[in-house]
């Protein structure tokens, strides 16, 4: 807002300069106009100076990789490219190859199921736990910090442990289900569900933490006022908590989607995207194309598709957070 105002002011200030006089001439000419110009220029330089570090950082660490990845998607980029630098332009051949492969449809469907399932589970359980801990009770703080544990364990470790838990023959889960032989990770119909369940477990701390923070921001007086009007329990949640938590909810959901779309290590650790591609997602497929089959062009093409999907959600996030600031 302030930025726009300053720009508008700058535009009106430049009106007094006669249209016939070139800018360079007015700059070198002595007098009131000249001094006024140099002051303005100095201010501009300061602004640029403050902007420069951020622009350089964004350009080097975000702009370059994204542009490189987009370009790579149109190239025949192999191991040889790393040494020779030769990467022939192939147009949309990589995109046609990855979208035309038999695995693609499966991977898209799995990505959607994995993302929707994970987010639904993480959010519902996360919100329930956040609301529960919002009430004060003995040891509440300690229990709440224990909840963060899944977040603190390296993903590769938790996926190894879950592989033991979910083992068909000797896993703890099947044993505690009374010796059931549920093929959690070995059947094509259950593996995706198992992977989603593990990802829900990992995502709960994130959802709980952010939502708990949102709940803390809701003034206690509102609940007291609502109680006077007869709204307690579920009604209080429906008419006080939920509307006021909405901006935070949007942020949690959009960030959750972006984080879930790119999940790689959990799936690779649990099933290696198997059995028979049952847990293959766009992210795992992109990884395998690039780093196991060394077809970096196709891997990049698939990665770009994933980036575009994430970008759509990121735009949604920006709009949602702007709305949250305004309200």
């Amino acid at each position: 807002m302030a930025e726009a105002a300053r720009l508008a002011m700058a535009r009106t200030e430049s009106v007094p300069v006669p249209a016939s006089v070139p800018e360079s001439a007015s700059g070198s000419a002595p007098g009131v106009a000249g001094r006024w110009w140099s002051a303005r220029r100095r201010e501009r330089l300061t602004q640029v100076g403050f902007l420069l570090p951020a622009v350089l950082y964004l350009g080097a660490f975000f702009g370059y990789p994204v542009v490189k990845n987009v370009v790579m998607g149109f190239q025949h980029y192999t191991t040889a490219t790393f040494y020779t630098g030769a990467a022939p332009w192939v147009g949309f051949a990589n995109y046609l190859a990855v979208t035309g492969s038999a695995v693609f449809g499966r991977a898209v469907l799995n990505t959607v199921l994995f993302t929707v399932g994970s987010i639904a589970g993480q959010f519902t359980i996360g919100l329930a736990i956040a609301v529960f801990f919002h009430r004060r009770f003995p040891l509440g703080g300690m229990l709440r910090s224990l909840l963060l544990l899944p977040w603190l364990i390296p993903l590769i470790v938790s996926s190894a442990v879950w592989r033991w838990i979910l083992d068909e023959d000797n896993g703890v889960l099947n044993r505690s289900l009374g010796g059931a032989h549920l093929p959690w990770l070995t059947s094509t119909s259950l593996a995706l569900l198992a992977v989603v369940l593990v990802n829900i477990w990992i995502g709960i701390p994130f959802n709980t933490t952010i939502l708990y923070g949102g709940l803390q921001d809701i003034p206690q007086e509102l609940y007291e006022a609502a109680a006077m009007d007869g709204a307690t329990g579920l009604r209080a949640f429906r008419y006080v908590t939920w509307p006021l938590l909405r901006p935070v909810v949007t942020v949690v959901l959009v960030l959750g989607v972006v984080y879930t779309l790119k999940v790689l290590d959990i799936i690779l650790g649990l099933t290696n995207a198997g059995p028979a591609n049952a847990t293959q997602t766009l992210a795992t497929q992109s990884y395998q194309l690039s780093f196991q089959r060394f077809d970096f062009g196709q891997g990049a093409a698939l990665g770009n598709i994933l980036i575009v999907v994430s970008l759509l959600f990121a735009v949604g996030y920006l709009r949602a957070s702007r709305r949250a600031v305004q309200s």
Binding site: A276, A278, Q288
Partner: peptide
Amino acid sequence: PKTATKIYTAIQTALTGS
């Protein structure tokens, strides 16, 4: 690597009864 990927995919498809 391309064929090796195809082989393990086929193994998994057959062993899971797909």
